[in-house]
Nucleic acid binder design. Structure first.
Lengths: 213, 213
DNA sequence: AAAAAATAATTAAACGTTTGTTTAATTCAA
DNA sequence: TTGAATTAAACAAACGTTTAATTATTTTTT
């Protein structure tokens, strides 16, 4: 079993990371104590500092590990010349809906940290990453405008509308259920009917917003 | 001066509330200590508990005091029969942009608390308040659909797009500046050019999204 | 109107907890 | 036997809150 040593270390780190993400999402970073986390992950309270150095380093590790997960997809699409710009927008809408709604805990931690603006270095890294994604997305829309297949819209704010819509429904499961007239127990983010509905709304809205006529 | 006693008490409470909102917005509720707040507001550390009972009661007071500030405007508009539905949407867009961007600190505290989901009672109150506003807004859109002046859109998610767009740009001043290619010092929320740009984008998007043809 | 009593506001100090982190000893695997 | 993993205990610091004493301000009484 010795050849699996590194893997097992990683597994344990990952084990802690996953419980941390869940707790940070539920209660917030500051409100989650290392003792809470140690109990939830069933490890000794010293292990977090042993593996990550500090509580701060832990959340930095989590966010840096995952924050750039949309990057490659967008850059690949932007370069693709066989797909029309409106289809690229559709693909990105489906991607964003799928990936954001699939990781609601990570989403919450990320946006809490974005709003927090403590930990200057981390905040700079996160805004940098998200801003670059948004700009690449906007570049696709601007290409469509230059090709005269899109209306002359505000590309940057159009991207903000797409991502902002998804973020809005992910703000609070409770509120989302209230808006959709669903019972409190309902899990909207894992509901494929809702995911389709959200993606369809965005595609429909972008079609009328972007396409000429 | 004795006849101003009640007013002065209220003034002092308000004095604390304003500094609290600033700090909670900047650093988050849990990360802001009563000692921080006392120093910022230049009062004794016992005064927060004296006036508000506890730190929790303080944030509850703050949010309950301000959370319903959009309610009356929407309900008044909804009942108005002299304004067309699309004009109502335009008015609400301008209102939301104006009011949300004018209170970025309150906005941050509110949305942090919405995402946090600690303090069950408060969370319930906030989701209730915001959901009712969103539903009233959606009712206006649904009226337009019934009158056959609007396309058959998803009214609830359309409202989410409007509010979500504004929230998106308010997530982080730093990121907002990055997206708009402005210097770090720029204050986008107080910039009237940006407010106009944001409102125009939303009105333009809603026109093409909602209006038939 | 002045003095006295009562209430409210304010303070510094201390309270008991809880926090993140470290230590030193121990267990485990190579 | 060596080095990493794990543990329980202890650390100082910071937390929200309370206390008890003091100062201001109202109210009541004279």
């Amino acid at each position: 079993m010795h050849f699996e040593c590194n893997k097992m270390i990683t597994d344990k780190k990952q084990h802690i990371i996953e419980h941390a993400m869940k707790l940070f999402a539920e209660k917030g970073f500051e409100a989650t104590s290392i003792r809470d986390l140690a109990k939830a992950a069933d490890v000794n309270i010293a292990m977090v500092n042993y593996y990550f150095g500090s509580k701060e380093k832990l959340i930095e590790t989590i966010l840096e590990q995952k924050a750039s997960y949309m990057k490659d997809r967008i850059e690949e699409l932007e370069a693709n010349k066989t797909i029309s710009e409106i289809d690229k927008v559709h693909v990105l809408i489906e991607d964003y809906v799928e990936r954001l709604l699939s990781h609601p805990n990570f989403h919450k931690v990320l946006y809490k940290e974005l709003m927090a603006n403590n930990r200057q270095d981390l905040h700079e890294f996160l805004t940098q990453t998200l801003a670059r994604n948004a700009k690449n997305f906007a570049a696709i829309i601007e290409k469509g405008i230059k090709q005269k297949v899109f209306n002359k819209v505000d590309a940057m704010l159009t991207v903000a509308s797409i991502i902002g819509t998804i973020n809005q429904v992910m703000l609070s499961k409770n509120m989302c259920n209230k808006l959709l007239e669903k019972p409190t127990e309902h899990e909207p983010y894992q509901d494929n009917v809702f995911r389709k509905r959200l993606a369809n709304h965005l595609k429909q809205m972008m079609d009328s917003h972007l396409l000429i006529n």
